[in-house]
Design a binder for these strands. Structure first.
Lengths: 174, 174
DNA sequence: ATCACGTTTGAGACCCAGTATCAGTCGAGT
DNA sequence: ACTCGACTGATACTGGGTCTCAAACGTGAT
């Protein structure tokens, strides 16, 4: 499965905000600080760095990759702290955890961004993001029918991409 | 997470079909044999047993639980064989693998059954199955737009169930 | 029936994402 | 500055899931 290909693109300009009042990500950082305060948790440099790193990501990323990125940037953060912080960021409504396969989990930023759903080619592993208002409407309707308060959803369509179809018959689909 | 609760119900009447020409699951078994033949694979007693066990399942089940069930029934099948066979059953279009969490993967029978989507209560872990024709139509439309041939999809809605809402404020939502 | 080849199996080693532990550190309200 | 409780990092641990390989077995051909 080639899901990782699009997950670790080049890193944009490093710009850690231990002092968040000067970063472009202020609003989200404020959300996080409010969450931490409510939960009687603390705002630490490690948590600031991890939040900052996640906000640089476009699309999906995975915890191990994020930890590696931080290490590459010269920040000493343990894997455990990365995992712990990602969980908090999810609780705070800033990230969404996504499950595609049984290898690992992925995250994506949802705060202030359009939420995505995915088309996955089972032959090439290629991933296509899309966003559908009709899907969101359908989701809310289904929730209403069952008295659920929706928090998030995952919609994954598995299939064969046009490119994979073109190569079919020749390259055996694993 | 309480996903397992509904996954290992009591086992219906044991009824292994090494000789499949006499079982109620004949049609699906025939599909499997055809698949195996096409792929130059072999029909073995282990594969027959595992297929039989999966067809007894209602809703989701997990590979480890299935292996345990088989052991309980007195069938000696290794974990490795269970995993290998489930993968083949998925390739054959009989099962669908489902990803809810990063603990493990689940499977459900799709051959000859309505496919399901799920509402998941993040507070209690309660799972509600539903089936939506509008969702299927939307899926096919999105696939058409991208030139994809759909194979399967997963639609999971995470939220708070009515019961969990009732208990809120008192029991802290983990 | 028998044969021969290639596939399958089981046992156990192995891998690795994710979690738990715990002593030392540090944030933040006073 | 103090103090208490939360946080971190190093590391051990857990448990799905996969890999390996020698022995066993299905299947099509004879």
């Amino acid at each position: 499965m080639a899901l990782n290909e699009r997950i670790l693109p080049s890193l944009p300009k490093p710009n850690v905000n231990t002092n968040p009042s000067a970063t472009p990500f202020d609003p989200v950082c404020a959300v996080f600080r409010r969450y931490l305060h409510n939960e009687k948790l603390k705002f630490t440099p490690e948590r600031a760095m991890i939040l900052d790193a996640t906000l640089r990501k476009e699309g999906l990323f995975d915890p191990e990759g994020l930890a590696t990125d931080l290490k590459t940037l010269g920040h000493r953060v343990s894997r455990a702290t990365v995992y712990r912080t990602l969980a908090h960021l999810q609780d705070a409504g800033i990230l969404k955890q996504v499950f595609f396969d049984n290898k690992q989990s992925y995250y994506e930023v949802i705060a202030g961004r359009a939420t995505n759903d995915y088309l996955i080619c089972v032959s090439t592993g290629k991933l296509i993001e899309f966003s559908s208002d009709r899907l969101k409407a359908l989701r809310d309707e289904i929730c209403k029918q069952h008295g659920f308060d929706p928090i998030s959803h995952q919609f994954h369509i598995f299939g064969i991409s046009p490119e994979a179809k073109a190569n079919q018959g020749k390259a055996k689909v694993k």
